[in-house]
Simulated scan of single mutants.
Amino acid sequence: MFEVLAFVYENYYADEGCPEPAHLQRKLSAVGFESDEIEDALAWLQGLNSAARSARPRVPETLEAAANVAAEPWLRQPLATSVRIYPSYEQNHLGTQCLGFIRFLEWAGVLPAHLREVVLDRAMAAPGAPVALDDLKVIILMVFWSFGLEPDALVLDELCDDANERVAH
């Protein structure tokens, strides 16, 4: 599934968006992807589109303001001072590498809380446990793309870089 998602990102990130699912399915099939991989990727993308539409980037600044904001059923917007606690099922599904990478991006200030929650939602929808770090990087790229955001060059380099090819000095 992640090969399909990477292909979609590489070929459509510069455009306004993906083609309609039926057209995209035909194109992916013509490229040579297996039908079950395509179906899994299209279902995942549909979930991403739904999450991107329902997640609002506006974060309340106080607890009183948070009480007055009607939150989506699956996502309550965190305060800027909130701390994310990962339940054991998320820890098991994501693994320490992915959780550490998410924390790194948060600490660097490039993954705000509302995007983090969408990344976590989509990572939890990914098959396999623990999720591979390279797969999480594809998820993060897809989430940025779905919100119409482009990470800065250093973050993009970190997301697209193959750590196995790095040479230590």
Rank of each mutant, 00 (worst) to 15 (best):
V59Q: 12
D15K: 06
L141C: 10
L136N: 02
Y9S: 03
D36I: 08
A125E: 14
V143G: 01
V4K: 02
A22S: 13
Y9V: 06
E20L: 10
V69W: 01
H169F: 11
R166Y: 15
A168T: 10
E106M: 12
W44I: 03
P78L: 03
R58M: 10
V4C: 03
A22Y: 05
H114D: 05
R53P: 00
G109K: 01
I102M: 08
D15S: 09
F33A: 13
S50M: 05
P112M: 08
D162S: 15
G17N: 15
I38L: 03
N49R: 03
Q97K: 11
A123T: 14
L141Q: 14
A6M: 14
V83G: 00
A71V: 06
G17V: 04
P57F: 09
V8H: 00
F104M: 12
R116H: 12
Y12R: 04
V110T: 11
S88E: 15
A43I: 15
D40E: 15
W107Q: 13
P127N: 14
Y9F: 12
C160W: 02
P151E: 14
E64V: 08
E72I: 05
Y89K: 07
S82T: 00
Y89G: 01
A153N: 04
E10L: 12
E3M: 06
D152Y: 07
A43S: 10
A168D: 09
L133I: 11
R84W: 00
E150H: 15
R26H: 13
V167P: 02
V8A: 01
Q46D: 05
C160I: 08
Q97N: 13
Q46Y: 02
Y13C: 08
L24E: 12
V8D: 01
A51D: 10
V167A: 09
G109C: 03
E39Q: 10
D162E: 13
A80E: 11
S82L: 01
E20K: 10
V59R: 15
A70D: 13
P19H: 02
